[in-house]
Write a protein that binds this DNA or RNA. Structure first.
Lengths: 255, 255
DNA sequence: TTTGCATTCTTTGTATACAAACGCATAATC
DNA sequence: GATTATGCGTTTGTATACAAAGAATGCAAA
């Protein structure tokens, strides 16, 4: 059961990590990454014991990781009923996008003011990797790198509370894209990212903010948030009710 | 040891709470409230065992509560060295206030749009309680209610991500006030809160936002963030280094 | 007297055992 | 035949035991 979790790339040096305090970070990062790359679909049940076995740690560690994820609204923690990957409703999606516009605007303005040459180089490098991922068809990595770009930009802005808020928003956005993206267009265009970096480097606030706002427009224009996006995808519609059935029959989103 | 924690008002029905899932919430809320009301000063060591004994629960529960608090940057979790009440630096304080201005502006705009009559009544009730607390000299309760006002306003705005961000910002603000407030003026004037509610009820966005921004100005004009606020208070200056000593001698911020 | 080191003691990190809650399946009754 | 009751199995919630990392203390040497 829980086959979805096995494709995790880095196998994790199970248990033996002598240094304390890092194990839960590792588990957290792996689950987070799996969700960000959409290897874990919304609604997927996250069993503590199964995860513990996969990562070679006790339930204590898993529980901590799930707790952190729940605090970022990436995972839903139902009392006595375990954790599932969150499945945002249309309304929740709208709220996340509203917050993101606000935050991205502020981040852009701060980045224009504070971003160093080194940070801009790192950002460019990330966009190149993002472009490469899409061009070789690795959509998962592309989505992850696209999210990390926005996170890195927040770091360049240099405001700690904003960074942590952005982390939560970016991962929720990824979930929303997984659930509501309509076509199969590459959903976070790297050329927009590149233009944005140029504007920041030129210290052109108006241009940078304008580009970022259009970028936001583009992202949510690709989503089906207009109505209930009803009956389009039964799995998405009912994912908040589903749990991974143990008998092979009904297991959702396996492929 | 850890005498600071004993004044907690509600004694907590220790352990016996039949319903599961609520115990960690209770502990979390109590510690959070203690910090918000400044019964727990910045830098105070939070021993897991001591807290467990006080609340009548095991370290497991305490640890979860501390984890949540750390995620909100209210508590600092140092690996292998335990938790302390966070003591924000001047730079961190500035960042928090920057974020708060941004969030409060958005919240105000949304509240003008969405706040119901019932919510406005509740807000007014809170301001009355806040005023009463200050007028009878209960500064702690006043500070707490002042924070809860801003939280309640976020709820009236109706944006979930914003609410959770605001929760984190409000509690950090309270810490900052504890550390940097200069005089002993009542620091969050309830009449400003009341005027704000009036503007929101009148659906006057410009007026409401303007009042909120002035309110923010007033709050941080009462703080000593201008320089390092140096040599004014040694305890405050070094509180980020201090831990609660066990021998009575050096225990900081006891009175 | 002060500085460096080793030992001890306290506190945190992790795993695991046990208890309680929930869901499912079977069975009994209307 | 449908619906509700009941028992079982699985999964989560909590406490506790054990291991490991730091901090404190005392001793020795410069």
């Amino acid at each position: 059961m829980n086959e979805q979790l096995q494709p995790l790339k880095k196998p994790v040096r199970a248990g033996k990590a002598g240094r304390s305090g890092t194990q839960d970070d590792i588990v957290y990062a792996h689950i987070f990454e799996a969700i960000l790359e959409q290897r874990l679909a919304p609604g997927t049940k996250l069993s503590e014991e199964a995860l513990g076995e996969i990562f070679g740690v006790s339930r204590t560690i898993i529980r901590r990781a799930l707790s952190r994820l729940a605090h970022e609204s990436v995972v839903l923690l139902r009392p006595n009923r375990g954790a599932v990957v969150a499945s945002p409703t249309v309304e929740e999606a709208r709220q996340v996008f509203f917050s993101r516009r606000m935050v991205e605007r502020a981040i852009t303005e701060l980045a224009v003011e504070h971003a160093t040459a080194e940070q801009l180089n790192e950002l460019r490098q990330m966009v190149r990797e993002e472009r490469d991922s899409f061009s070789r068809g690795d959509r998962g990595a592309g989505i992850r790198l696209s999210g990390e770009f926005h996170l890195k930009l927040a770091e360049a802005a240099g405001n700690a509370p904003l960074i942590s808020f952005q982390r939560s928003l970016v991962s929720q956005t990824s979930l929303i894209i997984a659930q509501y993206e309509s076509g199969n267009r590459s959903h976070c265009s790297y050329d927009e990212h590149m233009q944005l970096i140029d504007a920041i480097e030129a210290r052109d606030v108006n241009q940078a903010v304008s580009l970022m706002m259009h970028h936001m427009d583009h992202i949510d224009s690709k989503l089906n948030l207009d109505e209930d996006s009803a009956s389009d995808d039964l799995h998405a519609v009912f994912s908040h009710l589903l749990q991974t059935k143990k008998r092979g029959g009904v297991a959702p989103l396996k492929g």
